[in-house]
Design a protein around this nucleic acid. Structure first.
Lengths: 207, 207
DNA sequence: CGCTATCCATACAATGGTGTATGTAAATGG
DNA sequence: CCATTTACATACACCATTGTATGGATAGCG
């Protein structure tokens, strides 16, 4: 075979990553060989070993395309008044997250990371999940603390517990949906559950 | 080597399952060979292939030792008045579950099922998780519906949503803790979060 | 226009794991 | 107390996958 142009090479790299997503999701990371990925992209293992050092490197490149930290979601809202309404900031950031997750790429890669791979090579998916959870939980607790200081939180509800409650609920929903995304819409049920939970935690309207 | 007595044979079977738990948890199911399990139990693969057909069979036998359906937890409470106080039934059943999870065997096997194995052979851990979740969620919704009819639920809170909320929160906590059980006690934080959530969902004391 | 680095296919050796076949000594049943 | 089954250990053949080495054709650059 012949050498490709730079654009073609970049395209095959993306095609390999796309193929990896699909095969990983279907067969699980451990049970898919590089050969299967290559064939699924109409290539050979030679292409993979040219663009990536090994399976772990390919895996990390795949993750690189869908990083989604909680703080970025908040910033993407673009509404400067969110600091005055922290519970609303949480709400909007989560809705943005739900919308992202409905894109196949985000859904697939997160499903792979959480439900379809084990430790291998120098990849520790649980450590990655821990980082994601810590970041999200920390932000949630911060916003809940802010809400408490503003009197937006139900009296007697500890902001730390409120944040952990939210993180546990969102995480549970997340895991549940990623396990089988055809059972329900993450956007619909997520909105419903989140709104209900926030309503339960919000301070009752005074006067 | 020589033939063992029936009791010794049963003991080695259990030892193999114990070894499987430990190695699976440390290395992940896919990356552990039957040889590693056997050596960890001071045996050879011959012992494994005698007691089990293959890795999948061994895996299922390992799961068999820790099945814990939600309904059984309710029944184990032994208090016949739980039907009159469904929210309390949920609470006590969950506490029982938390206590079980603190036993190393229950914790390890559930951590393996949820975080350390992919599909392999005829084993589909996601399908198993789905079954567990369905069973738990169904029971929770039932009890919440019962609570709603008795007026124990906060007015305006849909019992279905309440059940899903509880299941998501408990599931999220469950996943979080199994990912790294040394960060917090499932019994302590679970009790705190569950009590807080139930308090939020309970109908305000009348009069 | 020629040279070289690039982009990939193909071929190869090495490895690790699986399943099974065979060996064997003692426990068990009659 | 003898025959048979049991409960493993050992040995073997087989297969899949990996990493690398090599080949080759062209794109890009001077």
């Amino acid at each position: 075979m012949a050498r490709r142009t730079k654009a073609e090479a970049a395209a095959t790299r993306e095609a390999l990553l796309d193929a990896a997503e699909e095969v990983f999701l279907e067969k699980g990371v451990a049970r898919t060989s590089l050969e299967q990925i290559a064939r699924h992209a109409d290539m050979t293992r030679g292409a993979i070993y040219w663009h990536f050092r090994n399976k772990a490197d390919l895996f990390q490149a795949m993750l690189q395309r869908v990083r989604m930290p909680f703080q970025e979601l908040v910033e993407e809202i673009g509404d400067p008044s969110v600091t005055e309404r922290p519970l609303e900031a949480i709400r909007l950031a989560c809705l943005k997250g739900f919308e992202r997750l409905e894109q196949p790429r985000y859904r697939r890669v997160h499903a792979i990371l959480i439900h379809h791979c084990e430790v291998f090579g120098d990849i520790d998916p649980l450590a990655m999940q821990n980082e994601m959870a810590e970041e999200a939980c920390g932000a949630l607790i911060d916003y809940c603390g802010c809400a408490a200081r503003l009197g937006h939180l139900r009296p007697g509800l500890d902001p730390g517990v409120a944040g952990e409650l939210l993180q546990a609920m969102l995480g549970g929903l997340f895991h549940d949906w990623l396990r089988n995304h055809e059972r329900f819409s993450i956007l619909e049920r997520g909105t419903l559950l989140l709104d209900t939970q926030l309503e339960l935690m919000r301070a009752p309207a005074s006067g």
